[in-house]
Design a protein around this nucleic acid. Sequence first.
DNA 1: GCGGTCGTTCAGAGTATTCTGAACACACGA
DNA 2: TCGTGTGTTCAGAATACTCTGAACGACCGC
Lengths: 172, 172
Amino acid sequence: MTRETVGRFVEAWGAMGSLWGINRSVARVHALLMASGEPVSLDEIADRLRISKGNASMSLRELRNFGVVRQVEVPGDRRDFYVTEPDVWTMFFRILRERKRREFDPALEAVHRLVQAQGASGAVRGRLEQMADLLTTIEGVVSRFLADPESSRTALAFIAGMPLGKGRKGGA
Amino acid sequence: MTRETVGRFVEAWGAMGSLWGINRSVARVHALLMASGEPVSLDEIADRLRISKGNASMSLRELRNFGVVRQVEVPGDRRDFYVTEPDVWTMFFRILRERKRREFDPALEAVHRLVQAQGASGAVRGRLEQMADLLTTIEGVVSRFLADPESSRTALAFIAGMPLGKGRKGGA
DNA sequence: GCGGTCGTTCAGAGTATTCTGAACACACGA
DNA sequence: TCGTGTGTTCAGAATACTCTGAACGACCGC
């Protein structure tokens, strides 16, 4: 676990943040803490990530609000130190749930309305239905995952390992 | 399919765009075309979405590059008209594939390196492994979906419909 | 050629997001 | 009480992203 390796991880994690809508700094702070066995002080975080103390402080607050980071005392040191909570996925779930609710669900709802509305001619209706179907499936999987991550993960791992079908339609 | 219903769909679709990294205007144009049986002219798009012709033109170009929109001729009309391609999901797949490659894969790679690197003490190693596991599962499902959407969808639909497990750990 | 219609381009305006750093508040020991 | 070390806040700088609209080129009929 050289600085180099940790650094690469921090950057990759920061870049991935945007994939699920997390601020880059927040994600980088999170990564640093995940890779650290020892509690880390605010100063050291700011130093190692080359961000201002202000930014580090705000990022930490956000991470604490998400429940993925906790403050700990270090005897004989006046400073605050931070560690990650054992459950890495709390934040992931919250964000997933929130974005689903705010962005995904309304779209699915709107597609359904549109399909049900009369006046859609054959082709339009067809493609809207096709779309509604896939979105509904995704909705189902995500809901299931949010409701019961444990067993869903097992099921997903199974899918990941399944042999491919005929593959007639290879996607884009 | 009143203007009202279509409008709601357009806005919801536009908002969902950010979920997978698409410009709002682009997503709105796409939505409008998806909901239209007739070919639509650039002017009408700009009018109905209240965006400039320039913006509409650029959004259409992007959609054509993604392969989800096509230009069609309307006899007796000098203007260009646009329709969506029958396969709605080309764009979705391309974007999914691209973002996976650019944002997800490097993160997974970095976590693996970190786990393999010696020097990680018990707790750190544990949580990094836990993380690597879930990311690997997700990677597998997405890869599979990209390689063979048809059969993966069936499998996912199955998961979505599965009864929940004990649900000991309810997530966030 | 000329005037009109149409689509494209892109500089720069407009907006949203992120980050910094100075000001501040607090705790503590001298 | 004062000075020092610490964390937080937030106005405004910096940056990233999006959109507009004027300028332009292509095309067409006359």
